[in-house]
Design a protein around this nucleic acid. Sequence first.
DNA 1: ATTACCTTTGACCAGTTGGTTAAACCAAAT
DNA 2: ATTTGGTTTAACCAACTGGTCAAAGGTAAT
Lengths: 208, 208
Amino acid sequence: MENSVTPAEERILEAAKKVFHCKGYDGARMQEIADEAGVNKSLVHYYYRSKDNLFEAVFEAAFSKIMGRLNEIFFSELDITTKIETFVGYYVTFLSQNSYLPLFILNGLYEKPGQIKKMMEKNHLSPDRLMEQIRVQVKNELNLDIDPMHIYINILSLSVFPVIAKPLIQVIFGLSNDRLEKFYEERKTEVPEFILKALKGYEDNQNR
Amino acid sequence: MENSVTPAEERILEAAKKVFHCKGYDGARMQEIADEAGVNKSLVHYYYRSKDNLFEAVFEAAFSKIMGRLNEIFFSELDITTKIETFVGYYVTFLSQNSYLPLFILNGLYEKPGQIKKMMEKNHLSPDRLMEQIRVQVKNELNLDIDPMHIYINILSLSVFPVIAKPLIQVIFGLSNDRLEKFYEERKTEVPEFILKALKGYEDNQNR
DNA sequence: ATTACCTTTGACCAGTTGGTTAAACCAAAT
DNA sequence: ATTTGGTTTAACCAACTGGTCAAAGGTAAT
């Protein structure tokens, strides 16, 4: 399509992202990827030997893109309140601009639950470190002894699901595109508020 | 596979559900569905003319199964607290037992956002009625003037996402299958508690 | 000009896919 | 016994799919 001077290999990867993200592994066609990159189909096989290889490259890029930033925020020096606000704000924005990414990743994880650990390591993601990080911060700043896992999943759920469920929400509530965008904009403040109010609730209970 | 006495057409539909749910539209093969039903491939085309038709039948069944119960609970006579507890309890259980369903439906909605409205009507689901139902109950029982849409989506997010993201959670936190099951069990009480604490937070602010 | 090396292509292939068709099967009605 | 109607099957097909391969293009060094 574009006649930029980008080397072929990179154009192929970009084309592959576009196609795989939208149509998934089974729905994607090597021919379509080649066309999208403005390149002969054989060249795709020249750089990436097989469809599997190409898909893996695309998947890894997507996974890193999403998890890298997540990591960055959660291990930053911010206090827990700002951290939650930053996290939600960033993800609601980023995901609603790349609304195909999260579902693509989830589907990929279902198909290949095997090779993920090496991707975790590549992104310097350790389950234990993450859990400990959250636990300590919740304990020190909020003085709460609650399971960090549920909190973390709750934050993730409230940020990610509404983006994944875009078409469902649009249908259930009958929203126009404009109204939907406004809805996501609202969530950037609504979600942190909701979470912090809940956490405050635990605090009150505990210190009674 | 099974040699039950169920009539062929029904066996085909059941087989189609199994295959489509796990592999999606593009990944599913008519031959595999036929094999799973213990039937010749031509018979599948005899009852459902095309793959598209068969998929539509499967999708509609899945959508009704999930949305029907959702509707039932939200329009029941329960007070808002019990309603949330019932809803979360039911969905966490149901979805973790049918963990392929929600992702299947979300994928389907992305591919065919068109024909959903008739399904909504078939399930007697009206956006306005649902919104009004929540708004009134939140207003009357909790004395809160907050946007029912965000609350509703929050409840849905906290119930559905952790199930969809099963493989992701297992990887991020390095959980065994046993520990994961316990995690879902915990959520049946943790999630309603989290939501109600948040709502209580709004209450305190407003009545100050 | 020739070599050498990487890139790019068109032609081709074996296996698979959704779908068709004509014939066989089978139970109930005549 | 034969007809009738819906059910089930085997054989077949055209289109498509991921992948291969030998040849052509291009470019820098010799």
